[in-house]
Simulated scan of single mutants.
Amino acid sequence: MKETYEVILLGAGSSLRLGTLENKIMLMLRDRPVYDYALNLFIEDERCEQVIFVVQKEDLENIKNQLLKLYNLVPKKITFVHGGTERQYSVENGLKALNNSEDGYVLVHDAARPFIDKEMINELFQTVKLEKAVIFAIPAKDTIKVVRNNEVHQTLHRPVIWQVQTPQMFRSKLLLQAHRQAAVDEFVGNEEGELVERMNHPVKVLEGKDKNFKITTSTDFMIAEAIVEQTN
């Protein structure tokens, strides 16, 4: 197996819950856009062959202009693809752009999670070589209830509930197989690990970090701003 990996960086989601007209990944956190905190790690990592950046068609030119200001060029590692109507379809579009789909590794990450770090990438990459499918998650702090029609349908046992994060990493061939099976079954999942689980393939869980949250609401963005101010 190669000692390199490829990345699908997901940036094609909507920003409805954040309440901004601009895509949240393009908002400036101090002196650079949200997506660049993760992107820069992959650009600097020699093990990363390619970053497949999944974006909305209407955002492409603005993102390229931001990259020109940041790097004086669009880094050669980046391949742009357009997003789909669902996360799963965006990842599928990214998988089509892989250089090494048979014996490679692919990492999937949300561009709206800026506080990924090199330690997490290292841990993920070392583990995926043995496990073939690895995700990050953190134990739930609150009790989780299943609610239907504004009534509690079920209370889940908190000690076994974990909240899934990205990055996630897979043998490329395995994730492609999982997506093909989901398409045949007309199944749309929440994240990539779920598709692999459906194939009865074990998915290893590594404990993530609280600060590796996804910027979804205006409160999340304010917390992100505070973290950046404290670390600079």
Rank of each mutant, 00 (worst) to 15 (best):
residue 9 L to V: 05
residue 27 L to P: 13
residue 25 I to N: 12
residue 22 E to R: 06
residue 20 T to Y: 08
residue 33 P to H: 07
residue 31 D to V: 00
residue 30 R to M: 15
residue 18 L to K: 14
residue 3 E to F: 01
residue 32 R to V: 00
residue 23 N to G: 05
residue 28 M to C: 10
residue 4 T to W: 00
residue 33 P to D: 15
residue 32 R to N: 07
residue 22 E to M: 14
residue 9 L to Y: 04
residue 11 G to K: 02
residue 20 T to N: 03
residue 34 V to P: 03
residue 26 M to Q: 02
residue 3 E to P: 15
residue 24 K to W: 14
residue 26 M to V: 00
residue 8 I to W: 02
residue 22 E to G: 05
residue 19 G to P: 10
residue 12 A to R: 02
residue 24 K to I: 11
residue 7 V to I: 07
residue 10 L to S: 07
residue 25 I to Y: 06
residue 11 G to P: 07
residue 24 K to C: 04
residue 13 G to L: 03
residue 7 V to C: 13
residue 15 S to P: 12
residue 4 T to Y: 14
residue 28 M to H: 07
residue 13 G to K: 09
residue 7 V to P: 11
residue 17 R to A: 06
residue 32 R to I: 00
residue 30 R to K: 11
residue 6 E to C: 06
residue 25 I to S: 01
residue 32 R to H: 01
residue 15 S to I: 06
residue 4 T to V: 08
residue 31 D to K: 00
residue 34 V to W: 13
residue 21 L to Y: 10
residue 24 K to L: 15
residue 23 N to V: 04
residue 30 R to W: 10
residue 4 T to E: 15
residue 28 M to I: 11
residue 6 E to Q: 04
residue 28 M to V: 13
residue 20 T to D: 03
residue 31 D to L: 00
residue 23 N to Y: 02
residue 16 L to Q: 08
residue 8 I to K: 08
residue 28 M to P: 04
residue 24 K to H: 15
residue 33 P to C: 10
residue 3 E to Q: 12
residue 24 K to S: 10
residue 18 L to F: 09
